[in-house]
Simulated assay, not measured.
Amino acid sequence: MSNRAAIRYAKAILQSTNKNNTGAVLFGDMQSVYDTIQGSRELQTVLQSPVIKAAEKKQALLSIFSGQSETTHSLINLLVENKRTSLLSKVAKSYIDLYNDMQGVKVANVTTAVPLSSDLEANVISKIKELTGSEKVHLKSDIDPNIIGGFILRVGDVQYDASIANQFRKLKKEFSKSI
Protein backbone atom coordinates (compact mmCIF):
# COMPACT_ATOMS: atom_id res chain seq x y z
CA MET A 1 0.00 0.00 0.00
CA SER A 2 2.72 2.47 0.91
CA ASN A 3 4.46 2.02 -2.45
CA ARG A 4 1.28 2.95 -4.30
CA ALA A 5 0.85 6.01 -2.10
CA ALA A 6 4.48 7.02 -2.70
CA ILE A 7 3.99 6.69 -6.46
CA ARG A 8 0.85 8.84 -6.31
CA TYR A 9 2.71 11.59 -4.45
CA ALA A 10 5.63 11.35 -6.90
CA LYS A 11 3.32 11.54 -9.93
CA ALA A 12 1.56 14.59 -8.52
CA ILE A 13 4.88 16.34 -7.93
CA LEU A 14 6.11 15.38 -11.40
CA GLN A 15 2.99 16.86 -13.00
CA SER A 16 3.46 20.03 -10.99
CA THR A 17 7.12 20.37 -11.98
CA ASN A 18 6.31 19.72 -15.65
CA LYS A 19 3.98 22.72 -15.62
CA ASN A 20 6.65 24.91 -14.00
CA ASN A 21 9.62 23.44 -15.91
CA THR A 22 11.34 22.68 -12.59
CA GLY A 23 11.60 18.92 -13.01
CA ALA A 24 15.40 18.87 -13.23
CA VAL A 25 15.76 20.96 -10.06
CA LEU A 26 13.43 18.68 -8.14
CA PHE A 27 15.22 15.63 -9.58
CA GLY A 28 18.40 16.86 -7.88
CA ASP A 29 16.49 17.52 -4.68
CA MET A 30 14.93 14.05 -4.67
CA GLN A 31 18.31 12.41 -5.27
CA SER A 32 19.69 14.32 -2.30
CA VAL A 33 16.68 13.46 -0.11
CA TYR A 34 16.84 9.77 -1.04
CA ASP A 35 20.62 9.51 -0.52
CA THR A 36 20.43 11.36 2.80
CA ILE A 37 17.66 9.14 4.19
CA GLN A 38 19.24 5.94 2.92
CA GLY A 39 22.58 6.96 4.42
CA SER A 40 21.22 7.69 7.90
CA ARG A 41 19.83 4.94 10.08
CA GLU A 42 18.89 7.54 12.70
CA LEU A 43 16.84 9.58 10.22
CA GLN A 44 15.04 6.45 9.04
CA THR A 45 14.18 5.63 12.65
CA VAL A 46 12.91 9.16 13.30
CA LEU A 47 10.68 9.09 10.20
CA GLN A 48 9.22 5.69 11.13
CA SER A 49 8.74 6.42 14.83
CA PRO A 50 5.17 6.86 16.06
CA VAL A 51 6.54 8.32 19.31
CA ILE A 52 8.19 11.38 17.76
CA LYS A 53 5.70 14.17 17.18
CA ALA A 54 4.91 15.34 13.65
CA ALA A 55 6.04 18.89 14.45
CA GLU A 56 9.46 17.60 15.53
CA LYS A 57 9.78 15.51 12.37
CA LYS A 58 8.82 18.51 10.26
CA GLN A 59 11.34 20.75 11.99
CA ALA A 60 14.10 18.16 11.60
CA LEU A 61 13.35 17.54 7.92
CA LEU A 62 13.10 21.22 7.04
CA SER A 63 16.42 21.94 8.75
CA ILE A 64 18.16 18.95 7.14
CA PHE A 65 16.83 19.89 3.70
CA SER A 66 16.95 23.67 4.15
CA GLY A 67 18.92 24.11 0.92
CA GLN A 68 16.30 22.36 -1.19
CA SER A 69 13.64 23.96 -3.37
CA GLU A 70 10.29 25.26 -2.18
CA THR A 71 8.60 22.27 -3.87
CA THR A 72 10.60 19.90 -1.68
CA HIS A 73 9.62 21.88 1.41
CA SER A 74 5.97 21.75 0.30
CA LEU A 75 6.24 17.98 -0.11
CA ILE A 76 7.67 17.64 3.40
CA ASN A 77 4.86 19.82 4.81
CA LEU A 78 2.24 17.77 2.95
CA LEU A 79 3.65 14.44 4.15
CA VAL A 80 3.81 15.71 7.74
CA GLU A 81 0.24 17.04 7.51
CA ASN A 82 -1.00 13.70 6.15
CA LYS A 83 1.04 11.73 8.71
CA ARG A 84 3.04 10.09 5.92
CA THR A 85 6.61 11.18 6.74
CA SER A 86 7.71 7.55 6.62
CA LEU A 87 7.05 7.66 2.86
CA LEU A 88 9.52 10.46 2.09
CA SER A 89 12.30 8.14 0.93
CA LYS A 90 9.91 6.09 -1.21
CA VAL A 91 8.38 9.23 -2.73
CA ALA A 92 11.87 10.50 -3.59
CA LYS A 93 12.83 7.15 -5.17
CA SER A 94 9.55 7.00 -7.10
CA TYR A 95 10.08 10.53 -8.40
CA ILE A 96 13.63 9.67 -9.52
CA ASP A 97 12.37 6.58 -11.37
CA LEU A 98 9.44 8.42 -12.98
CA TYR A 99 11.63 11.35 -14.04
CA ASN A 100 14.27 9.05 -15.55
CA ASP A 101 11.55 7.15 -17.38
CA MET A 102 10.06 10.37 -18.74
CA GLN A 103 13.50 11.53 -19.93
CA GLY A 104 14.21 8.15 -21.58
CA VAL A 105 17.13 7.45 -19.25
CA LYS A 106 17.85 3.79 -18.62
CA VAL A 107 19.35 3.11 -15.20
CA ALA A 108 21.51 0.04 -14.89
CA ASN A 109 23.04 -1.42 -11.75
CA VAL A 110 26.20 -3.46 -12.00
CA THR A 111 27.56 -5.32 -9.01
CA THR A 112 31.15 -6.54 -9.07
CA ALA A 113 33.58 -7.98 -6.54
CA VAL A 114 36.13 -5.23 -7.26
CA PRO A 115 35.74 -1.67 -8.63
CA LEU A 116 35.28 -1.35 -12.39
CA SER A 117 38.07 0.22 -14.39
CA SER A 118 37.07 3.16 -16.57
CA ASP A 119 37.59 1.09 -19.75
CA LEU A 120 35.42 -1.73 -18.46
CA GLU A 121 32.76 0.75 -17.31
CA ALA A 122 32.70 2.27 -20.82
CA ASN A 123 32.29 -1.23 -22.31
CA VAL A 124 29.41 -2.00 -19.93
CA ILE A 125 27.66 1.27 -20.81
CA SER A 126 28.14 0.56 -24.51
CA LYS A 127 26.62 -2.92 -24.12
CA ILE A 128 23.66 -1.53 -22.12
CA LYS A 129 23.02 1.05 -24.87
CA GLU A 130 23.07 -1.76 -27.41
CA LEU A 131 20.71 -3.97 -25.38
CA THR A 132 18.21 -1.24 -24.48
CA GLY A 133 18.36 0.83 -27.66
CA SER A 134 18.69 3.94 -25.52
CA GLU A 135 21.46 6.51 -25.84
CA LYS A 136 20.80 7.82 -22.34
CA VAL A 137 22.23 5.35 -19.85
CA HIS A 138 23.15 5.94 -16.22
CA LEU A 139 25.30 3.24 -14.61
CA LYS A 140 25.30 2.66 -10.87
CA SER A 141 28.14 0.53 -9.67
CA ASP A 142 28.11 -1.48 -6.45
CA ILE A 143 30.88 -3.57 -4.95
CA ASP A 144 30.04 -6.84 -3.21
CA PRO A 145 32.99 -9.10 -2.45
CA ASN A 146 30.54 -11.94 -1.71
CA ILE A 147 29.97 -12.52 -5.44
CA ILE A 148 33.66 -13.57 -5.58
CA GLY A 149 34.10 -12.55 -9.24
CA GLY A 150 32.18 -11.82 -12.41
CA PHE A 151 29.26 -9.41 -12.27
CA ILE A 152 25.51 -9.00 -11.79
CA LEU A 153 23.86 -6.59 -14.22
CA ARG A 154 20.34 -5.29 -13.65
CA VAL A 155 18.51 -3.07 -16.14
CA GLY A 156 14.92 -2.39 -15.14
CA ASP A 157 13.32 -5.73 -14.30
CA VAL A 158 15.91 -7.82 -16.16
CA GLN A 159 18.86 -9.28 -14.29
CA TYR A 160 21.85 -11.12 -15.70
CA ASP A 161 23.89 -12.92 -13.05
CA ALA A 162 27.36 -13.89 -14.28
CA SER A 163 28.90 -14.03 -10.82
CA ILE A 164 31.12 -16.85 -9.66
CA ALA A 165 28.99 -17.19 -6.52
CA ASN A 166 25.96 -17.88 -8.75
CA GLN A 167 27.90 -20.49 -10.70
CA PHE A 168 28.88 -22.17 -7.41
CA ARG A 169 25.20 -22.24 -6.37
CA LYS A 170 24.28 -23.89 -9.68
CA LEU A 171 27.03 -26.49 -9.24
CA LYS A 172 25.90 -27.20 -5.68
CA LYS A 173 22.35 -27.64 -6.90
CA GLU A 174 23.48 -30.07 -9.61
CA PHE A 175 25.53 -32.09 -7.13
CA SER A 176 22.57 -32.19 -4.73
CA LYS A 177 20.34 -33.60 -7.49
CA SER A 178 22.79 -36.37 -8.37
CA ILE A 179 23.21 -37.56 -4.79
Rank of each mutant, 00 (worst) to 15 (best):
D35T: 07
K11S: 12
F27W: 03
L26I: 02
V25A: 10
N18M: 01
K11Y: 10
Y34N: 04
M30W: 05
G23M: 04
M30C: 02
N21L: 03
L26V: 08
M30N: 10
A24H: 04
G23H: 09
D35S: 11
A12Y: 08
A24P: 04
N18D: 07
S40Y: 13
A10T: 09
Q15K: 06
Y34L: 08
N20H: 12
T22A: 06
N18K: 13
G28Y: 00
Q15Y: 00
S16E: 07
A12D: 06
Q38S: 03
Y9F: 08
I37M: 10
F27P: 01
D35K: 13
S40K: 15
N21S: 03
L26N: 04
Y9Q: 02
A24T: 06
S40A: 14
N21M: 00
K11N: 15
I37P: 14
Y9S: 06
Y9N: 07
I37G: 04
T36N: 10
K19D: 05
G28Q: 12
S32V: 09
D29F: 09
R41D: 15
F27A: 03
R41E: 15
G23D: 03
N21E: 05
T17Q: 07
T22W: 01
L14V: 06
S40W: 14
T17D: 07
V33E: 10
N21R: 12
G23Y: 02
A10S: 05
S32C: 12
V25R: 14
G23R: 08
G23P: 01
M30D: 01
T36S: 03
Q31G: 00
Y9I: 05
G28C: 06
L26R: 04
D29C: 11
I37W: 11
A24R: 01
Q31R: 08
S32R: 15
F27T: 09
V33C: 09
R41M: 15
N20D: 14
S16I: 05
S40P: 15
Q15P: 00
I37C: 09
A24M: 04
Y34T: 01
T17C: 01
N20E: 14
N20Q: 14
V33H: 11
D29T: 04
N18A: 00
A12G: 06
D35I: 08
G28F: 05
M30F: 07
F27K: 03
G28L: 05
N18L: 00
Q38N: 13
Y34H: 11
T36C: 13
A10C: 00
S40H: 15
S32K: 15
Q38W: 01
I37E: 09
L14A: 05
S32P: 14
D29I: 06
Q15N: 01
Q31M: 09
A12V: 01
G39E: 12
R41C: 08
F27Y: 10
T17F: 01
I37Y: 09
D35Y: 08
G28N: 12
D35E: 12
Q38F: 02
F27D: 07
Q15W: 05
